[in-house]
């Protein structure tokens, strides 16, 4: 368990530090964020044709309201956390790659829901928008990351973890009783 958390924290800090470099911002974060805005606009226009994406900004042509997708709302940090958690956990590389691919889709999918919901909440009530933006969606995205990781961990082959003495075993936790496992 300790090894997992240390690896997770080191990976996370390194990836986050790398994300903040001008190079990563220019070649990854900005294009990623612009793509997120474009996807959001494309989805929204299915029901509301008066919405456009300009760079990282999602704008309504009806009332001029716009949201700019900034750091923390582009899902990059959530993806970094998931990436670090999956890479740090002892598992075959094939499982890690599958987990990362599915996990990124799940996290970014919910993040698009966040962007679109905030876009309309902002037009409806700014106080509700602020609450949802600053607190609620932050918690929901992290809950999503945690759930994706838990689901991924459940798909891993147990035999390998047991042989390797995976994180929980090294943390001194006894394996569950068979009855508990069957009913969980």
């Amino acid at each position: 368990m300790i090894r997992f958390f240390i690896t997770f924290l080191v990976l996370q800090a390194a990836l986050f530090g790398a994300e903040l470099t001008p190079w990563a911002q220019q070649f990854f974060v900005v294009p990623w964020t612009n793509t997120l805005a474009a996807i959001s606009a494309n989805l929204v226009t299915l029901a509301d044709p008066n919405v456009i994406a300009i760079g990282k900004v999602l704008r309504s042509n009806t009332n001029g309201f716009a949201v700019s997708i900034e750091a923390g709302c582009n899902g990059v940090e959530a993806t970094i956390v998931l990436l670090a958690a999956v890479l740090a956990f002892p598992a075959p590389w094939k499982n890690k790659l599958i987990g990362l691919a599915a996990g990124v889709v799940a996290v970014q999918g919910l993040n698009i829901v966040r962007v679109i919901s905030l876009f309309y909440l902002g037009q409806w009530n700014y106080k509700v928008f602020e609450w949802a933006h600053l607190y609620v969606w932050q918690a929901l995205i992290m809950l999503d990351v945690l759930v994706v990781w838990l689901v991924w961990v459940r798909t891993l082959p147990r035999a390998r973890d047991d042989r390797d003495g995976g994180p929980p075993a090294s943390g001194g936790v006894r394996p569950p009783a068979p009855a508990a496992a069957a009913t969980a």
């Binding site: 368990m1 459940r154 147990r158 929980p168 936790v173 569950p176 496992a181 969980a184």
Partner: peptide
């Protein structure tokens, strides 16, 4: 919640 974590891992997906 390591015990719960272990139970989640042990239960079939």
């Amino acid at each position: 919640h390591r015990r719960m974590f272990e139970r989640l891992r042990s239960a079939s997906p």
